[in-house]
């Protein structure tokens, strides 16, 4: 139905040994900029050798590695529309690899990149439709890729609605962009936090509290939700309540991944491999898998 990503060759520089090349060999790429986003997240700007374009679509991920530490899947934050000779990754300090990245990687340093992998969001299906994007927490990073892509090709899409939930004000990502989006009249933005502080004047509560604030045309809306697993069933209920059908609802399934190429078995959701068949799925697809939600 959708094209599977197999554009490995666009980013790897496989050195052949006796005519053999390895799908596990990372391309060594340079980190050209590091920005602190919150206490937990930093944004890394990465340049592939020769400034090669990553050639991804929103919703895809790359395998990021530091030799001697390990490798982990990270969603691409930058949109294809803003990806030329560099791309951006928003990385949370959450595990063994990401803590080393946070603590040691500075501009000028090198990291390993493989990918992009997975099936991204099918923009050809989204075009001409209203798009409702509902990220929670770090889900805002891959959502940025989609939102920026739509903003940069604004006339090709209908309404753009963003419902963003964060735990607390200090964990809100991309504050500058959110401020800029508020100034635009072609993006409808609502932000809520679970636990406000004294400075917070916005919405309070979990992300589902935002849904009553927007009306959508259920006949021409695509919804995309990206966040922690616990969030999906509640967001999906809201979307179904608005009259969307399961195949109008897209979500992204993060799983443990060791290879990214459909071999190692870690990311399986029932018989499907999230790294290949996902991580973007429709709720209609997810319904067929007991392990999805």
């Amino acid at each position: 139905m959708f094209e599977m990503a197999s554009n490995l060759t666009t980013t790897t520089t496989p050195r052949a040994v006796n005519g053999h090349s390895s799908i596990y060999l990372p391309t060594i790429a340079q980190v050209v900029d590091v920005q602190t986003e919150t206490a937990f997240e930093k944004v890394y700007t990465v340049r592939l050798p020769g400034g090669q374009n990553l050639g991804h679509r929103p919703g895809q991920f790359v395998m990021v590695s530091i030799p001697g530490v390990g490798e982990a899947p990270i969603s691409v934050m930058s949109s294809p529309s803003r990806t030329f000779d560099t791309f951006k990754l928003c990385i949370r300090n959450a595990g063994d690899l990401t803590s080393v990245i946070h603590n040691t990687i500075l501009p000028g340093d090198y990291i390993g990149i493989r990918g992009p992998f997975g099936r991204g969001f099918p923009l050809e299906v989204f075009k001409g439709k209203d798009v409702l994007v509902a990220p929670g927490g770090l889900g805002m990073a891959p959502a940025r890729s989609l939102i920026d892509e739509i903003l940069d090709n604004r006339e090709e899409y209908g309404r753009l609605i963003v419902l963003y939930g964060a735990k607390n004000p200090s964990e809100i990502l991309f504050r500058d962009e959110l401020r800029a989006w508020r100034q635009r009249d072609d993006i409808e933005l609502f932000v809520t936090v679970d636990r406000p502080d004294e400075s917070w004047v916005g919405h309070i509560g979990v992300i589902t509290r935002l849904f009553p604030r927007v009306q959508i045309n259920p006949f021409k809306t695509i919804a995309v939700t990206i966040g922690p697993p616990v969030m999906y069933r509640f967001v999906v209920m809201e979307l179904l309540g608005k009259g969307l059908t399961p195949d109008q609802i897209w979500m992204s399934f993060e799983r443990r991944m060791k290879c990214g190429v459909g071999k190692c078995g870690h990311c399986q959701v029932n018989h499907r491999y999230s790294c290949q068949d996902g991580p973007a799925w429709t709720y209609a697809e997810a319904l067929a898998f007991e392990e999805a939600l």
Partner: peptide, 26 residues
Amino acid sequence: TLFTFRTGKAEDGAQQIEVEPVFQDV
């Protein structure tokens, strides 16, 4: 073994990485 690597610092202090694939038991 999938590949070997060597890490080090360049003269300007930047970290560098070299990788070399290994095809074992062929």
